[in-house]
Design a protein around this nucleic acid. Sequence first.
DNA 1: AAGAGGCCCTGATAGC
DNA 2: TGCTATCAGGGCCTCT
Length: 287
Amino acid sequence: MPELPEVEIVRQSLNKKIKQKRVEKVLVRNRNLRFKIPLNLQRLLKNQKILKVDRFSKYLIFFLSNGRYLLLHLGMSGTVHIVDRNKKQIFTNTSFYNSPNLPKKHNHVEIIFKGFRVVYNDPRRFGFFQILDNFDQLKKKFARLGPEPFQSKFNTKYIYSFFQEKEKNVKNFLIDQNFVSGIGNIYASEILFLSKINPNRKAKFIGIKDCKNIVFNSKKVLSDAIQKGGSTIRNFKNINGIEGGYQKNFNVYQREGLKCKKLKCSGTIIKKNISNRSTFFCDVCQK
DNA sequence: AAGAGGCCCTGATAGC
DNA sequence: TGCTATCAGGGCCTCT
């Protein structure tokens, strides 16, 4: 589901809700996510205070008072829900509370605080939890990932030199987390549109000026999306059940057959499978 | 090392 | 109504 902006939206609302709160208990209904939930997850989380919820790329990072870190990746379909305890709700193993935003199925993990629960739902189970014992492990975990678009390391020179002699198309690298982390399939198309770069173009043919545009538009697209509360194209919501609004700003994503939004451009948006993912672009103004 | 492709999984939707 | 095929915001793994 989520790319950097959506994860950031979840982080913000989650941080507000659970910062400095103590975990009473953890309930795991299904350990079989992308990676098996570690057996000691419950023990290591119990009675820990959440110092803060941070984020790197598409990973949520829970800082625990015992010096450990809980990582949560939402995969394609992971969502986080807050369910407040109120009045006469019955807590059972299958359907516990009548929360309008809580799905009926696939609530795999619950982190229980005093008076409310954080529920992790994930139909496709591509998301995962991981416990890291110390800062070194955390560093190591992210060592292979590329910089986020907001970091100064993600600059024109970095991109240009990375692209030297690369035969693969440029779109492929925008969604390659080892090159730049946080951009996914939707925002890659949007960034290339604003940069007037055809997603099919080989990386080695991307010039300095193009790199400059990629830097600028990556920041722009992601920060605009964060500002709008992320994109809701299927059912993304923040933890309070509120949908994002950036999908209204899409220039190309899911606009196949529609007129190109660029001023005076006569093109029509094309959908094409590039590096195994749907890619949307205008072949008139993206060269 | 770089690139191509497959796989993990469920649900929504389109087409017959 | 009910089948089958295709596609989804991601990332890891293997083979060449």
